[in-house]
Design a protein around this nucleic acid. Structure first.
Lengths: 176, 176
DNA sequence: CGATAACTGTAACGTCTGCTACAGTCAAGG
DNA sequence: CCTTGACTGTAGCAGACGTTACAGTTATCG
């Protein structure tokens, strides 16, 4: 999984992977049967888990989500998921996985927002904004490395989306 | 470029591309010299151009940007750019292109927002939110196909980010 | 017309791919 | 001890890859 995160999924080859792991391609095939099975198994256990605390406020939770996405061991997994989502646009074999990963994150954030009093439809809209926008901003960050600009955008996005039930919140509700 | 958009950049091979184009791989190498040169040339002319009218309001412009990204011939180009950005995370040869594409879009939106009276810092933040979030939402849309949910999110995002100089706008300004 | 250049088909090169056949080592259990 | 099963190294397969060499056709121009 570490190797996948560092070298990407696109040009994965058994022999370099094996040497990096201290084995031979022979062994990888012996244990996994097939490259496709190896990749599937690796991706399934490599999908990022956000593991958010349910007691914090939505704003804090969102910022913690961003921190987890961009730092630590989850960052590699997020990068991998983004690559899977991009590849799924043209490679049907990744489509199901990309869909599952998206919905998994979405459902977690939705239920968290519902638990904090949002009506379901609004919760889904806000969750979609958060989850997908943070993915786009992560892609921006990883591509440009411009931490300052992206960080400012994330903070503004989070506060304006979840912004504490003020005039804005009702303004958003009018859209539904 | 059409072939690239449909089959993706990851597993591109000269021989299938040539047969789809009615030529042989021999000819592709003859004209482009190298596969790498072909890809570079194709990607440079395939990067999406948003071509936004500068007279419309920011909100209308943003919604038109979203429409262009997800429909018509620009959609394929956007998908391709998203793949390039995802690949650039691990493949250094795409990093420069991904960076250029991001900054190009960003600068256009920034100058458009400045032309409508935003202070530069706030314009950059809002432009980052718009451009990168719309990319993330496009990835969501292309992966899940859930048009209704994503569309609601886009409308809420656009109005809350550019929302017409109300209380929210000043609230965002406080962050800077 | 004859020459020069651009074009294009065939075949092959060396390398890499996923994968397999074969043989061998090695520890576990009756 | 001896056998059975799991493990693993070597070599190699058939195919795809980017690229090249060579030959032949076709068009351009003096």
């Amino acid at each position: 999984m570490t190797y996948l995160g560092e070298h990407g999924l696109a040009g994965l080859s058994l022999r370099p992977l094996a040497t990096a792991l201290g084995t031979s391609d022979r062994m990888l095939v012996h244990y996994f049967g097939t490259k496709e099975a190896l990749v599937r198994q690796a991706l399934e256990s490599a999908m990022p888990e956000l593991g958010l605390p349910s007691d914090a406020s939505p704003i804090d939770t969102a910022q913690q989500l961003w921190a987890r996405m961009t730092q630590g061991d989850q960052r590699t997994r997020v990068q991998l998921m983004l690559e899977v989502m991009a590849l799924a646009q043209t490679a049907p074999e990744y489509r199901e996985l990309a869909q599952a990963a998206t919905h998994q994150w979405l459902n977690i954030v939705v239920s968290l927002l519902v638990a904090h009093g949002r009506p379901p439809t609004r919760a889904e809209t806000e969750a979609t904004i958060l989850v997908s926008s943070l993915k786009g901003l992560a892609l921006d960050l990883f591509a440009t490395g411009d931490t300052a600009r992206v960080q400012r955008a994330v903070e503004a996005l989070v506060t304006q989306t979840l912004g504490s039930d003020g005039e804005f919140a009702t303004a958003t509700a009018e859209l539904e």
